[in-house]
Design a binder for these strands. Structure first.
Ligand SMILES: Nc1ccn([C@H]2C[C@H](O)[C@@H](COP(=O)(O)OP(=O)(O)OP(=O)(O)O)O2)c(=O)n1
Ligand SMILES: [Mg+2]
Length: 248
DNA sequence: ATCCTCCCCTAC
DNA sequence: TAAGGTAGGGGAGGAT
């Protein structure tokens, strides 16, 4: 906080240089937020509303059947595969097939957190939130890549533009994840595959999809579909599907 | 009974 | 060399 900055180290004497620590404090806060992946994700949620209303204003998105007018809804959930890590592979295709993790630091000690790990890296037990130092213990040949926040924004917009071509009822969950109500708009698995194909063609990145008759089942179906797949839970299979889910 | 605020937790 | 922010669900409990 600027009001605290004059209490900082090296500013104890009254030589008229009190403004310097205040300015450096402000720069610190700005760089912190501009490099924070969690700030990027969190503020995007509010940002999505603008993207949505702009696209919906074009009035080109088909309206699904209201829940009251169809016996069984058709809900789709989509989630980009290891989003940030996938973007790095688009930027540098030679990373294909190698274990990759997104992180500010590549050091073997310290507490820098991994934001996203690709599926090669996950075979070693590496996952989001893990310290890079721990990840390199598990996988010394792990390739560390930087953040590309501008590209995440661009690719996220592409996903939402595609989803809104199939239905006007899109609920954003995050930068890489959304629900879509496609009740009465066609075969839900066919729509899943169309969305996946469109997105892969436009961005070169894979997105997985789950489909079922409610949001919860669709979301869990996406976990089963990953990576680079689609999975349907039919109404009469829901009980068995839920019943066999492992703990953890 | 309802509404509100605070707090804890979780998913991104 | 590191950038642990943000929104929302839901329970506890006080005010109305
Ligand atoms: N603890 C976390 C979780 C997520 N993210 C960021 C990086 C992810 O790429 C993005 C999307 O989150 P997901 O939970 O969808 O994870 P991924 O897309 O990376 O992998 P998955 O294939 O499991 O969806 O959010 C992050 O920075 N820190
Ligand atoms: Mg994802």
């Amino acid at each position: 906080r600027p009001s605290d900055a004059t209490c900082g180290v090296g500013n104890s004497n009254s030589n008229g240089k009190a403004s310097l620590p205040i300015r450096r404090e402000k720069d610190f806060v700005d760089t912190f937020f501009s490099n924070s992946r969690l700030h990027f994700i969190g503020s995007w949620k509010a940002n999505i509303d603008g993207v949505m209303s702009a696209a919906l204003a074009l009035n080109k998105s088909p309206q699904p059947l209201p829940a009251t007018e169809c016996k069984v809804r058709q809900i789709i959930h989509v989630d980009i595969d290891c989003f940030f890590a996938s973007v790095a592979t688009i930027v540098n295709p030679t990373l294909e097939g190698k274990p990759v993790a997104v992180c500010h630091s590549d050091h073997s000690n310290g507490t820098a957190e991994i934001s996203s790990a690709n599926y090669e890296a996950r075979k070693f037990g590496i996952k989001a939130g893990m310290f890079m130092s721990k990840a390199k213990e598990l996988c010394p040949q792990l390739v560390r890549v930087p953040y590309y926040f501008e590209k995440y924004q661009e690719i996220s917009r592409a996903l939402y533009r595609i989803l809104l071509r199939f239905s006007a009822q899109v609920q954003p969950i995050s930068v890489d994840e959304a629900f879509v109500d496609v009740s009465g708009l066609g075969d839900s698995m066919a729509i899943c595959q169309e969305v996946r194909a469109c997105f892969a063609k436009e961005t070169g990145i894979t997105v997985s999809a789950g489909a079922s008759h409610n949001m919860l089942l669709a979301r869990i179906a996406t976990k089963r579909a990953k990576p680079n797949g689609a999975f349907l839970v039919p109404s009469d299979a829901a009980e068995a599907f839920i019943g066999e889910l492992p703990v953890g």
